[in-house]
Design a protein around this nucleic acid. Structure first.
Length: 483
RNA sequence: CGGGGAGUGGCGCAGCUUGGUAGCGCGCCUGCUUUGGGAGCAGGAGGUCGCCGGUUCGAAUCCGGUCUCCCCGACCA
């Protein structure tokens, strides 16, 4: 019997050791990249994650970028305990309702049953606000702007490395303000100046911003602002949220201050966070069939100098190039493992996403040249040794914008404007659909949910954030399948 | 909770129908030859076959029980 006329051109027969192509099986491709780029392993307890050195180095760089912006926004770092009295969670009704299904509760300590169980923090609103209540007395104590870097635990039934794990790392900011307007302005400032800026400029992922529907809102918030990114398969990933908490927690925990007129008032609050999930976003938004592609700012190694063979002074030339690139301010690694084949080493660095590679071998060297390879499109250029550092600089500079622009083009290509639920479901099979909220409403949102499509956010018709007091019927819902 | 599937070296799998004491690919170790896109040859290490019990001279294989994981549905948000 004759085989089918032709194999799909984008699905070649798997060559030995190659990744599953993205279009064949995206989730499998993701798992393989995470494993083979040595980002993370599954932990021994279901849903837990071991972040390996390569993955953690990316996280550290992301942390640095975020931390700098958080501090620029005026918040200070602090640290609050892992264990929270169970009773604290109950103080805010919606909050406890939202989180109780996924709490890890410690019932024993020191060999005895505890009188009051303690929960492992799923988020720290409750502990932090119990201290805010002590610290805030006067309007002069406001605004109070605190951030912490921490791990949190939410017992997950369907874990996936980085995207949804039982324990993960994040930063959570918590603030208290004298007025509602001040709190709202700060929540938006964090959204724009910290989150959107980091995602666009550092991670290179264009995001769709807006606010969550009541159904998707953070438990205890009055408004949740969100950044949603589009992954390589067209699905949405919530990449960061900034919440206006109103006075919900202030009333529950008694955060009161005396204003300029001597009147006792409750504070207005915000909270906001992004997590190691961003590493998953990075993989899924920028990765290709050869593995990870890293923006230079997040790459643990920006350029690898690969010694092809240790002959005719190639080692000396490679070492000199490492020195020159280091002096130029790049993070450089020398790969002189010449007992491992050239192909294996090349493929390995591509899997790990290193943006630039310089191949130094005796053949090129005889002509006074080296080969500079760009990871983002795997193009090679032969350049004189003296020009190598400059060429690497060009590759690095190009990588950041290419990754961002490709992601932006993909977002635009996979986003459509539709008018009703049925069309939205169809469009969500491809990517994002923008549908008038008036055509959807709570019933439409439920209908979409039955088809595994969710409202990622609401925004103004032109894509900007909804202005205060704007009629709900003027808003547009961005809907998609989501992680 | 209901339906389906799967547990065998680090990873991916075969073997089970028809019981005879475990095999393949990748990976790993040693040596030699190699090295410009996942090298070749030779040698080698590594497994209480998820767990408990039963049948049998003998169980990865047959029977009963149990645990875990995956997929679909339900539930929850």
């Amino acid at each position: 019997m004759a085989p089918p006329r032709e194999d799909p051109p984008d699905a070649p027969r798997p060559s030995k050791g190659a990744l599953t192509p993205r279009r064949v099986d995206f989730p499998r491709w993701y798992q393989e990249v995470v494993a083979r780029a040595e980002l993370a392993d599954n932990g021994p307890v279901r849903g837990t994650m071991v972040i390996r050195p390569w993955g953690f180095a990316i996280w550290e760089r992301l942390q640095a970028a975020l931390d700098m912006r958080i501090k620029a926004a005026g918040a200070e770092n602090a640290y609050f305990p892992l264990f929270i009295p169970e009773s604290y969670l109950r103080l805010e009704a919606e909050h406890v309702e939202g989180f109780s299904p996924e709490l890890a509760v410690v019932t024993h300590g020191g060999g005895k049953q505890l009188e009051e169980p303690v929960v492992v923090r799923p988020t720290s609103e409750t502990v932090i606000n119990s201290y805010f209540a002590k610290w805030v007395q006067s309007h002069r104590d406001l605004p109070l702007l605190v951030n912490q870097w921490a791990n949190v635990v939410r017992w997950e039934l369907r874990p996936r490395l980085f995207l949804r794990t039982t324990e993960f790392l994040w930063q959570e900011g918590h603030t208290a303000h004298a007025t509602e307007a001040d709190a709202r302005a700060y929540a938006l400032r964090i959204l724009r100046d910290v989150y959107v800026d980091t995602m666009e400029q550092v991670v290179g992922i264009p995001v769709v911003t807006g606010h969550k529907t009541a159904r998707e809102r953070f438990a205890g918030a009055t408004r949740t602002w969100t950044c949603e990114g589009m992954m390589g398969d067209g699905k949405a990933l919530q990449m960061g949220t900034s919440h206006e908490l109103g006075q919900n927690f202030a009333r529950a925990f008694g955060i009161q201050f005396t204003d300029e007129e001597g009147v006792l008032r409750y504070a207005w609050q915000t909270s906001w966070g992004v997590s190691t999930r961003l590493i998953g976003a990075l993989v899924m938004a920028h990765g290709d069939d050869a593995g990870l592609r890293l923006p230079p700012e997040l790459a643990p190694v920006e350029v690898v100098v690969l010694l092809v063979r240790d002959e005719n002074g190639a080692r000396r030339a490679a070492a000199a190039l490492v020195d020159e690139l280091t002096a130029a301010g790049h993070r450089v690694r020398l790969d002189d493992r010449t007992d491992t084949s050239f192909g294996r080493r090349s493929v390995g660095w591509e899997l790990k996403g290193v943006p630039a590679r310089v191949e130094v071998g005796p053949r090129d060297l005889a002509d006074g040249v080296v080969t500079v390879v760009a990871r983002h499109d795997r193009t090679k250029a032969t350049v004189p040794i003296a020009a190598a550092a400059g060429a690497v600089g060009d590759v690095l500079a190009a990588t950041a914008s290419v990754l961002h622009d490709e992601a932006a083009a993909e977002l635009a290509r996979r986003t459509s404007e539709v008018a009703d639920v049925a069309a939205a479901v169809d469009a969500a099979a491809v990517g994002f659909a923008r549908v008038p909220w008036a055509a959807l409403g709570v019933e439409g949102e439920a209908a979409l949910a039955a088809q595994a499509v969710s409202v990622r956010c609401l925004q103004a018709a032109d894509g900007s954030l909804a202005r205060e007091g704007a009629p709900e019927d003027d808003l547009v819902a961005v809907v998609a399948r989501a992680y």
